[in-house]
């Protein structure tokens, strides 16, 4: 059975096309692009909330998008136990909706960060099944507010429920940082308790094609399809 997926576009999304290509090229299945004012969502296996600056990120990153018409359908999709992936601004939107814990605050150096980062998986889930333990993935980040924060109690829950999907780590060579944006426990991506919703700051959709600097981003879609 072929894998079906959809990407939501908000005004100000700027990685929606990238996410569509990522899904089309890797899933080979049906891919839908859904405008934020739609009130229904086709039945698909995976929905991506893409990166960008939805509504200019003028209130808090992701805050306005979390009140869009389509969001009720996105929540229903997640409650149906189907996959939901928020990348960058999508991760921020997921925390604003409340589907994921914690919040994403300004990077520790208070500067936008657009560079390659290195991550590895922390706890196993369906999004990282194809990734080996201790395998280092190289994936670009591009964010201003990617510094994951939550209180101690929440952090304990995230650990106890094994909800931490990815953490930042050093790369193979010198001059790579351990925790690029100052996230608590170097968290780069978390899931909900049921582990069907993942939010991550790095952009796997910019690391999959042969001409990209790395193809490690493929592993996430490969994990879901396998």
């Amino acid at each position: 059975m072929s894998f079906k997926s959809a990407v939501i576009t908000f005004p100000g999304s700027n990685c929606d096309r990238d996410a569509l290509c990522y899904l089309k090229d890797l899933t080979k299945g049906e891919v839908h692009n859904i405008w934020h004012e739609e009130t229904s969502l086709p039945k698909v296996d995976l929905v991506i909330l893409p990166g960008g600056f939805s509504f200019g990120d003028y209130l808090r990153s992701g805050a306005m998008a979390s009140k869009s018409k389509i969001i009720d359908e996105v929540v229903k999709h997640a409650n149906d136990n189907r996959y939901l992936l928020g990348i960058c601004n999508g991760f921020q939107i997921l925390t604003e909706i409340g589907l994921l814990e914690g919040a994403l605050i300004r990077n520790k150096k208070l500067k936008f960060l657009g560079k390659n980062c290195f991550i590895k998986k922390k706890f196993k889930n369906n999004f990282n099944l194809s990734i080996k333990d201790n395998q280092i993935l190289q994936i670009p980040v591009a964010h201003n507010e990617g510094n994951f924060y939550c209180d101690a109690e929440t952090l304990n829950l995230l650990k106890n429920n094994e909800q931490i999907a990815f953490e930042y780590c050093k790369g193979e060579f010198s001059n790579t940082e351990e925790n690029i944006n100052g996230s608590i426990e170097a968290i780069a991506g978390i899931t909900n308790k049921k582990k069907n919703v993942l939010g991550m700051m790095p952009h796997p959709e910019r690391a999959y094609s042969d001409f990209h600097q790395s193809q490690d981003g493929r592993l996430i879609i490969e994990s879901l399809i396998s």
Binding site: N14, C15, R17, D18, C21, Y22, G51, K111, F112, L113, G114, K115, P140, A142, H203, E205, R206, S209, F211, H212
Partner: peptide
């Protein structure tokens, strides 16, 4: 350069 997004649009080589 790290303050600029150089990989958005997915076509940067």
């Amino acid at each position: 350069f790290d303050q600029y997004d150089s990989t958005v649009m997915g076509d940067t080589i």
